[in-house]
Amino acid sequence: MSTTTPEPGWLQRNRMTITPLLFLLPGVLFFLVYVISPIIQSFNISLYEWDGLGEATFVGLRNYEELASDRAFEISLWNNLKWLALYLLAIPAGLFIALFLNQNVVGIRLYKSLFFFPFVISQVVVGLVFSWFYLPREGLLNAVITTFGFDPLNILGDPTLATYGIIAAGLWPQTAYCMILYLTGLNAVDPEQIEAGRLDGAKGVRMLWHVILPQLKPATFIAFVVTIIGALRSFDLISIMTNGGPFGSTRVLSFYMFEKALSEYGFRMGYGSAIAVVLFLIMLVFIAYFLWSMYREERAARR
């Protein structure tokens, strides 16, 4: 295109390369400094014993060896798995509510917004709200279950229940998120296919499974992505609701890393980084999967 003008300058000739470069520069620079290079640095720091102040001592893989025999680390890892598995319940729960709300009655828009808005509240407030909800004496939960004749529970004080109690609190906003994804998805479902399904005699669950769900695939994919990320990022709720307790039973890797790295008893930046690296590697499995899916989509889109 640029050949139409006589004797174009260097800038003019290369504008299709220079322009995107200039546009990318600030964003990429910021991202490299604050995101990419810290990841590499964390890998490096995990090989050192460092209190964040003085000289760092190289210890090789010793931090990782210590992790292998660290009981708190083991508990954290298990709890992370619980989070991953149970957090996925947000997807069917979100779908269920979306199906329930996908109607055209008066005021349904307001209902949808009100169902959604737990997601907008910060996790800190969600954590506080739920820890009060669970309070053994003052909490509404026990007020409700004791009227039905059950024994009161102290969910956050019981090491076997506490993690589930926190996950339940996390599921609340996460389900709302999945719900909104599915509501949007349901809006775009092709009515002709539904009609075709009806003619074939499909109803209810069969219709959902064979006709609707395949069309909701993009929504499910995104719901899956955000839910996995959310599960592995769980930190706020634990910090607010139990602070890792009772006796360390609700720690997850993200929380344990923070505890170790910025502990009152001496910053252990190296050990903390080693925990972070483990968490990162777990996440990397999913990140790789997401990127792969997106890459396939990109290639399909180009064709």
Partner: peptide, 17 residues
């Protein structure tokens, strides 16, 4: 010492429960 206290108190709480 701080680290002993931290591990210790967690154990004490567990004992009480």
């Amino acid at each position: 010492p701080a680290e002993m206290a931290s591990v210790g108190m967690e154990g004490l709480q567990e004992f009480m429960v």
